[in-house]
Simulated scan of single mutants.
Amino acid sequence: MTPIPVFDGHNDVLLRLLNDYAADPTKAFIEGTRDGHLDLPRARQGGFVGGFFAMFPPNPKKTDFTAPGAIGGNPPLPAPLTLEEGRASTLAMTRILLDLTRAENSPVALCRSRAEIDAAIAAGRIAALMHIEGAEAIDANLDMLEVLYAAGLRSIGPVWSRANIFGTGVPFHFPASPDVGPGLTEAGKDLVRACDRLGMVIDLSHLNEAGFWDVAKVSKAPLVATHSNVHAICASARNLTDKQLDAIAESNGMVGLNFATGFLRPDGAMRADTDIEIMVRHLDYLIEKLGENRVGFGSDFDGANIPAAIGTVAGLPVLIDALKAHGYDEALIGRLACGNWLDLIERVIG
């Protein structure tokens, strides 16, 4: 049986390839790896047809945010990165994605529009939308933004959960409010205006609440959180309040369900034995607040502790089956799994 196609709002496979397979990341992705969540063979198995491929500049000193209990333990956020640190890793991941998609016969296509995504999927290729998670590679003058846009960048999260010159991230605290710290800097507001001008998705997932509202005031584009969940169900600071969800709905924006267990569970624990039912509860709530056309998946594959029942991208049909058992019809599942993200991309990027 052919899996339902899934276009996903967030993955961190480029960082895993950089860290673990730098000698030949293209070969590792195409032939498959024994570790991690996402590669080509498992994508084919799970019905993954594309998504937002994030470039996340890693912290020099690694903090394991995926370990059981790490989120509930309220770990301190890492120190800000320098421009040089952010730029080196971001450009290295850009190179990996460009190499992976460069060949005309490559099974992965770098896509810059809805039309290019549609064409890639129709041709049986993985459609990759280039995304930045934490804009430490970009200078206050935004010169590097223009360079990366020319390379194919079409989506950007101004901050990861650490602060940078553009704003303040939300900490991995539980239970906690996202209303912590100052919002966007003037450079951050300039970045938002530039993204609007270029036609780029602005990802709110790691912004604190003040930054969220600053984007809502400055941007004329739909508000988007590529991988966030419901604060009313799981009181993680990383999740969205009802007021934020209302603003996203009013802007005709989008939220992608994050598979990270610590942002799903009411107890905030990072536990792989998390029941799929809690994912369905979040989707029910998001659909109630946003409508059926503004909700999708934002798995955080290769960047999170996800339910063991899903395991990797190959396990996406497990979630699809759970939605069917819950009573979602085929049309709604198709929108959640793929169609809503493609429509959002068309609204923002073209």
Rank of each mutant, 00 (worst) to 15 (best):
N340R: 02
S161L: 08
E85I: 08
G47C: 12
F212A: 09
E288G: 05
G183I: 12
N208R: 04
Y149S: 11
F48N: 01
A115P: 07
D267W: 02
P41K: 03
T241V: 10
Q244M: 15
P3L: 14
D99K: 03
P25H: 05
K217L: 09
A325T: 14
L344W: 05
F166P: 06
R347P: 04
L332Q: 13
W341C: 01
T63G: 02
L18E: 00
L336F: 06
G268S: 00
T26G: 13
P222W: 12
A67L: 07
A187S: 15
N59W: 09
T2H: 12
P3D: 14
A79L: 12
G32Y: 05
R271C: 04
E288K: 09
D246T: 13
D64Y: 09
A187R: 05
V218I: 15
A269V: 12
H326V: 02
K62V: 11
A260S: 12
G311P: 10
V201S: 00
H10E: 13
L40E: 06
E104H: 07
I345Q: 11
G339L: 00
A331R: 08
T274A: 10
I71E: 15
R112L: 00
A123P: 03
G311E: 02
I248Q: 10
K289A: 14
A119T: 06
A187K: 03
I121H: 02
Q45I: 12
L344F: 07
K324I: 14
N340C: 00
M1H: 14
V230Q: 00
E133V: 13
A54I: 02
G73F: 10
K27V: 05
F301A: 02
T2A: 13
E186G: 06
L257V: 11
G268M: 00
I121Y: 01
T90I: 04
G72T: 15
E330V: 12
G183T: 08
L98W: 03
A325V: 11
A187H: 13
A221L: 12
V255H: 04
G73L: 10
V313L: 10
V147F: 09
I333T: 00
N340T: 06
G181F: 12
L14Q: 10
E84Y: 02
E292Y: 04
L191P: 12
T226P: 06
L204V: 01
H227K: 04
P266N: 00
K61V: 15
G86F: 06
V230T: 05
A325K: 15
V49C: 08
A135Y: 03
F212M: 12
P25I: 06
R347Y: 04
A247Q: 13
L342G: 09
F48C: 08
L207Y: 09
G86K: 08
G32T: 03
L153C: 01
N229P: 07
F29W: 04
G50H: 01
R162N: 15
D273N: 11
A216C: 10
Y149M: 03
A176F: 01
L323P: 10
P307H: 09
N208A: 02
L14G: 11
V215W: 01
A260F: 14
A194S: 13
L264P: 11
T185I: 07
P76W: 13
P41A: 01
L240A: 09
E250V: 08
P178D: 07
D329P: 11
S155G: 02
W213P: 03
V49F: 08
